[in-house]
Simulated assay, not measured.
Amino acid sequence: MHQLVRLEVRRALRNKKFLFFSVVHPTALFLLIGGTRNGTTPVLGTELTLAAFYMVAMASFGALTAALMGNSERIAKEREKGWVRQLRLTALPGRGYVLAKTASAGVIALPSIVVVFVVAAVVKDVRLDAWQWAALTGAIWAGSLVFAALGVALGYLVSGDAARPVTMIVYFGLSLLGGLWMPTTVYPQWLRSLAAWLPTHAYAALGQAIELGHAPQVSDVALLTGYFVLFAGAAAWLYRKDSLKA
């Protein structure tokens, strides 16, 4: 399994288009959205400044891109090309393949987080305690595994041709409704109630709590854990179902 993780990481790091959308794109969005005003501009309905809010939002968005987009389409195409069928002939168990895909997506999500943090600190003068930087990195990285598992599930759910449009709908829907592009405090009440149950909303809330010097809400951690179990379980079930077809 470790060899498969290393292979997946090397493949991702050689993909310039993937690196652009998972690292450069969220950083550019942070500079365009979060860097348009001074560092003391508050975000409506929160105790965070604009720069601090969008630092966490775009770091989470980049990690989401790496974890979700990096898995779904690649797995769907690998199924069609017979690569997954070949792996089943090896000693790698089914759960090892799912875990390897999830773990590799988590590894390549890390640069997305770090680059946004560095740019925020250097360009927008975002200042946090050392423990906050470490906690933010760990929380956003760990949370990205939820979306890595979702990517694996989508890769087994749809065909290679349908993988990209389906994933893009899920990707943009979760990002927009969950509050990664704009604070949910500007949404109407019915939409805020819906957003509160989305994994991306809880994901962003982890980092926002840490920025304010608090521990993440238990409800947010529980919601993300529940989604991870759901997505990972779905991925495992779909993998077994796909195995019976082969």
Rank of each mutant, 00 (worst) to 15 (best):
L44T: 14
L44I: 15
G45P: 03
G45V: 07
T46S: 13
T46C: 05
T46L: 03
E47V: 15
L48S: 06
T49P: 02
L50R: 12
L50G: 03
L50P: 05
L50A: 09
A51Y: 00
A51F: 04
A52Y: 01
M55T: 10
M55F: 00
M55P: 00
V56E: 05
A57C: 07
A57M: 03
A57H: 01
A57S: 04
M58Y: 04
A59R: 00
A59T: 05
S60A: 15
S60T: 11
F61D: 00
F61C: 05
F61N: 05
F61Q: 10
G62P: 00
G62R: 00
A63P: 01
A63K: 04
A63Q: 02
L64V: 01
L64S: 01
L64F: 08
L64M: 12
A66Y: 01
A67E: 00
L68A: 00
M69A: 11
M69T: 12
M69P: 00
G70N: 08
G70C: 06
N71Q: 11
S72R: 02
S72A: 15
E73L: 14
R74F: 05
I75H: 02
I75M: 09
A76V: 08
A76E: 07
K77W: 11
E78D: 14
E78Q: 14
R79M: 06
R79P: 03
E80A: 14
E80T: 11
K81G: 09
W83K: 10
W83H: 13
V84I: 14
V84T: 13
V84Q: 10
V84C: 08
R85P: 02
R85C: 04
R85F: 12
Q86S: 12
Q86G: 15
R88H: 08
R88M: 13
L89H: 13
L89W: 10
L89I: 12
T90C: 05
A91K: 13
A91F: 11
A91E: 14
A91V: 14
A91S: 15
L92F: 04
P93I: 06
P93S: 07
G94I: 06
R95L: 12
R95A: 13
R95I: 11
G96E: 04
Y97S: 06
Y97E: 12
V98N: 02
V98P: 00
L99P: 01
L99E: 10
A100M: 02
A100F: 05
K101S: 11
K101T: 05
K101L: 05
K101N: 09
T102M: 08
T102W: 02
A103K: 03
A103D: 02
A103V: 15
